[in-house]
Amino acid sequence: MSNEQGSGLARYVLGRLAQAAFVLWAAYTLSFLILWSLPGNIIANITGGQATDLTKEQISKIESTWGLDDPLWLRYLNSLGRALHGDFGISFATQQPVSRLVAQSIPPTVAIAGLGFLFALVFGVGIALAATRARWRWLSGLLLALPPLGVAIPSFWLGLLLIQFFSFAIPIFPSTGNDGFVSAVLPAITLAVPTSALIAQLLASGLQQALAQPYADTARAKGASASRVQLRHAFRNAVLPALTVSGLVVGGLLAGSVVTETVFSRNGIGRVTASAVSAQDVPVVQAVVVFASVVFVLVNLIVDLVYPLLDPRIVTVRRRRLPVTPIPEGV
């Protein structure tokens, strides 16, 4: 690697790190402004909706207990400083430290999200490969019709249908609960359907484009079998663009846990979120929003940092950017 390439890479990595830090700070600030800038609302939330019955002294006592008598900018700076140390305050509803509440609820969600991701990968890649490989037009048409269906089905409805079929009609899996692998299967399928649809859609269009490229023709002309062209040549090129939606996929699994864990009455960060919203428990809601943003930004950062290793063009192309409107020659 030459010196010039090295400095390009360093600039690329530093740029990505700075961008990630900025997005995280801005997401924290945004969620703070949304959730904390309505003071009357906050006191009603702390007391459980009875702010009107309180005397002036009671209100000011609550305000000083929760630090609400400070101006908004001071509270923002204080809370930002504490958040940097992993302290997101005390839950209004349970009076417990928010960080512990959120941290405790992560492992069960990771279990169904991880299994769901596995399912999504298998189904998404399987559908994309089968659809671009099928010899019959009707079969590939049928397979390509699945992803739009997958994104259109409301996941709360899908979860309830799965319970009807696989817990009541044919009792294979339990309808609710947190014990073991068996109870995680249906929630994981519920999370996997929209995710696999996204993967299948992206990968199928990438494969179709790649298979139409001259290098695919060259490989065929040199006598490579159809599956070799598809897997060795087209797939490698189609998978790269699909990597860029990793953040979206992981964020989607996390967000999907709110509905899924409610449907299957499972413990986890989604259930914590749903009950925090119901109780208008502002500190917990903010912590979840910031946590989701951290996960999204981290996944994207990892993809951004790994990408130049897989595709070196990303660093060099950025420096030799074309003008926005290329002027055609000879006019």
């Binding site: 997401a27 959730l35 919203v277 809601v285 999204f296």
Partner: peptide, 24 residues
């Protein structure tokens, strides 16, 4: 566009939930 990046870093349903907490 920076603002858009920030908004898109929060999953849509969670952002909507935060807004519902604020709005009622």
């Amino acid at each position: 566009m920076r603002m858009v990046d920030v908004l898109l870093s929060i999953p849509a349903i969670l952002l909507a939930l935060a807004l519902v907490v604020a709005l009622g």
